[in-house]
Amino acid sequence: MALILVVEDNIENMELIAYLLRSKGYEIELAMDGKKALELADKYNFDLIILDIYLPVMNGFEVLKRLKSSLNSNTSVVAVTASVLPNNKELLFAAGCSEYLEKPFAIDDFCEMVSRYV
């Protein structure tokens, strides 16, 4: 089964995402900040990384930049964020993000998105 890293600083959002992924049988690791996400990415070979953008310690843009320079090229990174800034989507794709999902998201949309990458 796929191994997924969830990087989310909002505990309620993290719990929801973790619940959805575990209910589908995925193995997951959790990080609440960018520094921890990078530590876990060095330790494990993730099939998918779900990354919030506005994080403590190190924001998601910096995490994405560092991840993309060190990750296996087969690892997809999906941004999940509540940001409504118009250029964020373009910046994320330019930084190497595979997909962008806005919060709040529909559960079916989230599950469908995950299934495309693992």
Score class of each variant (00 low, 15 high):
Ala2Met: 03
Leu3Gln: 02
Leu3Pro: 01
Ile4Asn: 01
Leu5Val: 01
Leu5Asn: 00
Glu8Phe: 03
Asp9His: 06
Asp9Lys: 04
Asn10Met: 03
Asn10His: 04
Met14Trp: 09
Glu15Val: 07
Glu15Phe: 02
Leu16Ile: 09
Leu16Pro: 03
Ile17Ser: 01
Ala18Asp: 08
Ala18Cys: 13
Tyr19Asp: 10
Tyr19Gln: 10
Tyr19Gly: 07
Leu20His: 12
Leu20Trp: 10
Leu21Tyr: 07
Leu21Ile: 06
Lys24Glu: 11
Lys24Ser: 12
Tyr26Leu: 09
Glu27Leu: 14
Glu27Asn: 15
Ile28Val: 11
Glu29Cys: 00
Ala31Phe: 01
Met32Asp: 09
Met32Phe: 07
Gly34Cys: 01
Gly34Leu: 02
Leu38Pro: 07
Glu39Trp: 00
Glu39Pro: 03
Ala41Pro: 04
Ala41Gly: 10
Ala41Asp: 02
Asp42Pro: 13
Lys43Ile: 10
Lys43Gly: 07
Tyr44Asn: 01
Asp47Asn: 14
Leu48Gln: 02
Leu48Asp: 03
Ile49Arg: 00
Ile50Asp: 00
Leu51His: 03
Ile53Asn: 02
Tyr54Val: 08
Tyr54Asn: 11
Leu55Ser: 05
Pro56Gln: 06
Val57Lys: 15
Gly60Arg: 13
Gly60Cys: 13
Phe61Ile: 06
Val63Ile: 11
Val63Phe: 12
Val63Trp: 09
Leu67Pro: 06
Ser69Phe: 08
Asn72Phe: 05
Ser73Gln: 11
Ser73Thr: 14
Asn74Pro: 02
Thr75Trp: 06
Thr75His: 06
Val77Gln: 04
Ala79Phe: 14
Ala79His: 12
Val80Lys: 01
Thr81Pro: 06
Ser83Phe: 01
Val84Glu: 08
Leu85Lys: 13
Lys89Val: 12
Lys89His: 13
Lys89Leu: 12
Leu91Val: 04
Phe93Met: 06
Ala94Pro: 02
Ala94His: 10
Ala95His: 14
Gly96Asn: 09
Cys97Pro: 08
Ser98Gly: 05
Glu99Ile: 10
Tyr100Thr: 10
Glu102Trp: 11
Glu102Leu: 15
Lys103Trp: 11
Pro104Asp: 10
Phe105Gly: 04
Phe105Ala: 07
Ala106Ile: 15
Asp108Gly: 14
Asp108Thr: 15
Asp108Met: 15
Asp108Pro: 13
Asp109Gly: 08
Asp109Phe: 13
Asp109Lys: 12
Phe110Leu: 14
Phe110Lys: 12
Cys111Gln: 15
Cys111Glu: 14
Met113Val: 14
Met113Tyr: 14
Met113Gly: 09
Val114Met: 13
Tyr117Trp: 15
Tyr117Pro: 14
Val118Ile: 14
Val118Lys: 15
